[in-house]
Computed example of a mutant assay.
Amino acid sequence: MITRNAIIISCPGQEEHFLRGAAKDVINIFNYLTSPRGGDWKKHEIFCLKNPDWPEVKRLLDRCTADYQFIYFAGHGFSDKNRKRFLVFNDQSIEDIKLFTHNNKQLIIADSCRAQYATISGIPPAEDIYSSFTGVSEARAAFDDAIKRSQNGKMIVYATAHNNEAEEERYGRGGAFTLSLLVAALDFRTGLNLCPVMIEDLLPTVKRTLLSQKYTQTPDVAFRIGNLRVPFLIDIAQMEVDEKLVENEYINIESENKPSLFKAIAVVTLLILIIRGLSD
Score class of each variant (00 low, 15 high):
residue 192 L to M: 01
residue 168 E to M: 12
residue 235 D to M: 10
residue 225 I to D: 10
residue 241 V to P: 04
residue 105 K to C: 11
residue 67 D to I: 05
residue 211 L to C: 08
residue 74 A to S: 13
residue 33 L to S: 04
residue 78 F to R: 07
residue 123 I to R: 04
residue 88 V to N: 08
residue 214 K to R: 15
residue 272 I to F: 13
residue 131 S to W: 02
residue 215 Y to S: 05
residue 150 S to Q: 12
residue 66 A to F: 02
residue 251 I to V: 15
residue 214 K to C: 09
residue 91 D to T: 14
residue 140 R to N: 04
residue 58 K to Q: 12
residue 193 N to A: 06
residue 122 G to W: 12
residue 272 I to C: 06
residue 44 H to Y: 13
residue 154 K to M: 05
residue 132 S to I: 02
residue 108 I to H: 14
residue 143 F to E: 00
residue 203 L to N: 03
residue 221 V to K: 08
residue 230 V to H: 12
residue 100 F to P: 12
residue 45 E to M: 03
residue 186 L to V: 00
residue 277 G to V: 11
residue 250 Y to M: 15
residue 10 S to N: 15
residue 229 R to N: 15
residue 230 V to I: 05
residue 53 D to S: 08
residue 17 H to W: 15
residue 174 G to E: 09
residue 111 D to R: 11
residue 213 Q to T: 09
residue 277 G to N: 07
residue 3 T to I: 11
residue 143 F to M: 01
residue 34 T to D: 01
residue 70 F to C: 03
residue 202 L to M: 10
residue 156 I to S: 04
residue 126 A to C: 09
residue 40 D to S: 13
residue 275 I to H: 10
residue 243 E to M: 12
residue 100 F to Q: 14
residue 275 I to G: 03
residue 130 Y to T: 00
residue 102 H to E: 12
residue 214 K to T: 02
residue 15 E to N: 10
residue 47 F to L: 06
residue 142 A to F: 07
residue 44 H to P: 05
residue 135 G to E: 02
residue 58 K to Y: 09
residue 147 I to R: 06
residue 188 F to T: 09
residue 223 F to P: 02
residue 86 F to D: 10
residue 21 G to S: 10
residue 172 G to I: 05
residue 239 M to K: 13
residue 109 I to A: 10
residue 253 I to G: 10
residue 254 E to M: 13
residue 84 K to Y: 14
residue 194 L to P: 01
residue 247 E to P: 04
residue 95 E to Q: 14
residue 92 Q to F: 08
residue 195 C to P: 00
residue 51 N to H: 06
residue 240 E to F: 07
residue 54 W to N: 01
residue 185 A to M: 07
residue 113 C to T: 14
residue 44 H to R: 04
residue 184 A to Y: 13
residue 34 T to C: 14
residue 258 K to P: 02
residue 130 Y to E: 05
residue 89 F to D: 15
residue 225 I to Q: 06
residue 11 C to D: 08
residue 114 R to W: 13
residue 90 N to E: 15
residue 98 K to G: 07
residue 127 E to M: 13
residue 150 S to K: 11
residue 150 S to F: 05
residue 245 L to W: 13
residue 142 A to G: 11
residue 217 Q to H: 06
residue 278 L to Y: 15
residue 120 I to M: 02
residue 241 V to C: 02
residue 225 I to H: 07
residue 60 L to H: 03
residue 82 N to Y: 15
residue 245 L to G: 11
residue 46 I to K: 04
residue 60 L to N: 00
residue 28 N to R: 01
residue 86 F to S: 01
residue 166 A to R: 09
residue 208 R to M: 10
residue 74 A to G: 04
residue 88 V to F: 09
